[in-house]
Design a protein around this nucleic acid. Sequence first.
DNA 1: TTTTTTGTAACACATTGAGTTATAGATATT
DNA 2: AATATCTATAACTCAATGTGTTACAAAAAA
Lengths: 145, 145
Amino acid sequence: MKADAKFSTAIHVCLYLHYRGEKLLSSQEMAASVNTNPVVIRRVLAELRKKDIVGSVAGNQGGFYLKRAVDKISLWDIYQAVNDRELFQKPKVNEECPVSSNLAQLVKLPFQAAENAMQPSLEKITISTLYNQLDDILKTSPKFC
Amino acid sequence: MKADAKFSTAIHVCLYLHYRGEKLLSSQEMAASVNTNPVVIRRVLAELRKKDIVGSVAGNQGGFYLKRAVDKISLWDIYQAVNDRELFQKPKVNEECPVSSNLAQLVKLPFQAAENAMQPSLEKITISTLYNQLDDILKTSPKFC
DNA sequence: TTTTTTGTAACACATTGAGTTATAGATATT
DNA sequence: AATATCTATAACTCAATGTGTTACAAAAAA
């Protein structure tokens, strides 16, 4: 799954796990909410599990659960968990050219700084923040899933 | 071209135009430096031209040139010029689900805030900054292209 | 008038992504 | 103990996207 789409999906799943509030939720049920395949969900959750954001129980009646309090799961935590790649792609190098051959080195720090600049912004928002906002929305127009 | 790759390519081309310092440079020559096709270069430069970062002259002995002083071309200017898409992909919506159907709205502001957080960081670095650094590198290990 | 070069559109091939199928392993239920 | 349900993961297929190329009109210098 593409990094940026994974981010959205991962937020969705965390929010949904909290929304449902059940002990364990199957990938099947989450797939229905995200409108995709259970395997796709499990692949994303596998990455969240590595960072101890979710846990899972195999076997009959098994499923996934949030491993931390929702106010301890920030968007930055989720971003880091699912973003394997660099935000900006490193340039291809043409060794023949002094500009090209040094470009990767020149942009490395600026690219890192830009990505790091997002941190405080994404750290401020947690699953708790989003859930409270969702709750407010649903109070005015209630429907259930 | 993918947004993140375009960003690198656009920086490359701006830096290269200044490095060569000639009145006009053809897409062919730039393509050689970037190790790609002239059409690919022209497509990127078309976006930079829309933002008045470069200019072009058609016809025999035509080519491209930087339209601003290099200390007035920041990485943020270039980023904005070539990034047509959103940094983070909006989630697919499943209208049946109250979490899914509201997710796009919930993450809109956080996503925008994160992208905006990069601005001051990328504004600080200009083509002039990068060129001076390149110049320092080339002083110690000079080669020509 | 010829040549060179930009500006695009259209096409083809390669890469990547998304979804599916399959299967092994784990665990509750019976 | 046997069965059913669910995770974990690999392998495969089809679709989407990206990249490079070809083609050609328009522009301008030689």
